[in-house]
Design a protein around this nucleic acid. Sequence first.
RNA 1: GCCCUGAUGGUGGAAUGGUAGACACGAGGGACUUAAAAUCCCUUGGCCAUAACGGCUGUGCGGGUUCGAGUCCCGCUCUGGGCACCA
Length: 946
Amino acid sequence: MDYNFRDIEKKWHQRWVEQKTYHVEEDKTKKKFYVLNMFPYPSGAGLHVGHPLGYIASDIYARYKRLQGFNVLNPMGYDAYGLPAEQYAIQTGQHPEITTVANINHYREQLDKIGFCFDWDREVRTCDPSYYHWTQWAFQLMFNSYYDTALNKAQPIQQLIAHLEQKGTEGLNAWATEELSFTADEWKQKDEKEKSELLMNYRIAYLGETMVNWCPELGTVLANDEVVEGVSIRGGYPVVQKKMRQWCLRVSAYSQRLLDGLETIDWTDSLKETQRNWIGRSEGAEVVFKVKDSDKQFTIFTTRADTMFGVTFMVLAPESELVNELTTPEQKAVVEAYVEETKKRTERERMIDKKVTGVFTGSYAINPFTGESNPIWVSDYVLAGYGTGAIMAVPAHDSRDYTFAKHFGLPIIPLIEGCDISEESYDAKEGIVCNSPRADVKPYIDFSLNGLTVKEAIAATKDYVEKHGIGHVKVNYRLRDAIFSRQRYWGEPFPVYYKNGVPQMIPTECLPLLLPEVDHFLPTATGEPPLGHAKKWAWDEEKKLVVDNSLIDNKTVFPIDLYTMPGFAGSSAYYLRYMDPKNDTCLVSKEADEYWQNVDLYVGGTEHATGHLIYSRFWNKFLYDYGYSVKEEPFQKLINQGMIQGRSNFVYRVKDTNTFVSLGLSKDYDVTPIHVDVNIVSNDVLDIEAFKNWRPEYQNAEFILEDGKYVCGFAVEKMSKSMFNVVNPDMVVEKYGADTLRLYEMFLGPVEQSKPWDTNGIDGCHRFLRKLWNIYFDKDGNLITEDAEPSKEELKSIHKLIKKVTTDIENFSYNTSVSAFMICLNELNQLKSHNKTVLETFAVLLAPFTPHLSEELWEALGHTTTVCDAQWPEYNESYLKEDMVKMMISFNGKARFPMEFAVDADSATIEKLALESEQTKKYLEGFTVVKVIVVPKRIVNIVLKK
RNA sequence: GCCCUGAUGGUGGAAUGGUAGACACGAGGGACUUAAAAUCCCUUGGCCAUAACGGCUGUGCGGGUUCGAGUCCCGCUCUGGGCACCA
């Protein structure tokens, strides 16, 4: 009887459900192990072959840990809020929840086919009120908190208010948007609205004015990665910069802790490096420059304090408030014109064409080290958002300053001995400092850096600056606060209402604030977000109820916030919720959190390196500060599964038209490539009718064909719903079975490596399972095992396998494990072995990889319990001893004579035997033994010299 | 530009500094079969040689360390990823 994977997999899937095989409870008698996958967004395209790669890898690990006796938590859920469902709702009027639930059900079906050991009783969905209750709760807690820079943790905002009431801003240790200074009396005189505004400067969740990527067509703000070359990825609509008042999270306050935490977790170096870059810590100094003939002064930030003597001009960011202050009346017109001009250009445009632009303000700053007057310019190469929005320009040692100086003919003073600055600046922080001060100039202060190395000079200057009160040492971070508002419908609503324009939190006991019903999912006619359509979206403060908008009287009934939270809100603390998913009194109970601690193994893609994986760490640290999470870092070990790449197809839209031109002719037009669903493309030829029906905006599309066909372009890239190149695993499961799919995805190559999806080779894995079946069963389906003690060869073969598989799983080298299984099976076949003990061990070893088949074999071998609770075998080193050692003799490192040498002993004995053997002696004559190298159980290498 | 990866047959990929190319796919040959499918066996980095044993060469390029380098060090080239007027 053949290996009937369909029946076997169906049978075991049912059995697992009936027996709740994968249900897990806290059990203090067992050690815990928490395995987690980044939960998927349930897209309409369904699960593709790339998703399971990580799930299978973690499933194998989870099963392996369970076999080792750990109490394993391996949950799964859905990141259910997202733009695609909303877009679909806009197009069809179908409520996103319906789409989402349908997609989730589809995902679940697909996941169930692959045989994962998820505990579905712990499923979470971010769009479920019982879940987003805690997302809203965390947001409110952040609103009611500030970051204390002395204690280095979040604290209740009440403490900050108490401080302001007593001492004003004096002695205040709080991370702030901008440094403010006022007294307790000034604070007390402010009205509620003013106080609220001031507190926004400190709250961890705050309302702030920020520049955003605004897409008018989509009526929403887009994240940077949703915008490419000034147009939205989805739809290709133009995106503009716009200043908006929105909710923000003070992630920047946690910069240092996010950086330090990286030292305590087991992630790849490259991922840690990516996060370090993103956080972008730079140590430098803030230095105060006085303005000439004025009592004004301003501060600049520099990491090159050593270059103080090379400053030849100053530059302000156009958005800087200093611009107005420092512009002289004569220059006012020019400067204002310039500032207006830069406003029109987006940040993107400014970066693309690196035109050197700028204007002189008319003012001069006095360099505190040279006493020289440096002209103050305005230029858009200086960013308002970083440092102080003002810089000192050292053209000799900064390439941007250099270009600017060359363009406007400003002086350049070299400060490093022997550096060549005739063509470009010398940016390296190496060399010996000179011209500091210059020999031809009378020293302004008693301070010299000449002769020091750059590093020494930086330290010396910082020291001087601190001592003389002209500045201080300062650390800057590039990490920006997260913008937390979205002008969308399908997301968590903010539990906030506005009382006379002052944001108020809806009482905690009234959470969750449910997402209201709307009849349109687009922005309103007045440009408000979709929640503006909600009829029942007002808060009755007395009744503590959501009521109809028409009841708003601004006395007891107030409007509710119209924004919703972004995708990362729901995914930031879901790992905590899995520990205690049904708790309706808190996010996670103390007991559950203390038992499960944090995630031991987290598996997911690198694409989340600067998004989810930063936000989640931030969110967890915040909860940790209040004791809601016992561990400061959420994910102890992280494995990045490589992306399974897909083969995408493109159509080429002629710019500003609805005409598409075939690949061969696209060179003659100005075109934008747009991804097209691979399912409506066959051999790179587009099905035009299917394309027209694909999206409403293409209904009336026109085509320029070649040879009567529309030929699409292609590329190998990430398999993703947004690239429309998704391949589903269902077909593979149907044809070969889940166990083959699991084995094959692991066999494809290292888990962490990206590779394009390719079904060549899947036969090999399937063949292996069939051969495996045939070693247990004869043609009639009868078990053919022998009860005898295993032979020496059998023991060697199986213990080799135990060792290999055990170490491979620990190292996530699943591909070589699969090879080891194949080798061992071949050996057993050669030995014509049907030994029961050996076959039992084989089935257990294979259980993490091919659970259905292993269960079937385990049962056939007479076991009544599930193979999941078998004991992971230990290997015995003594069976693995090689009994042949290879020996090599090298003469002056030139010749080598390989020979075999029978031995079963330790290194010292091998060495002795090797030197005394008859075989060797004839070679030793006339030579001195330089050294003998014994590679245990493998090679003896005798090095000889004349 | 900066940071991080990686580079091995026709392909995916194996190799704690110790016989490079495991394992699998593909290809070629053979067995079984009326035939096909399935299955099994053999060959398969390149070059040379052969009745046969075998020999040379070979892990992106150039150096170095070592008895011994795909692996370690230095300098390049290219691939992929991240960041990017961040002072």
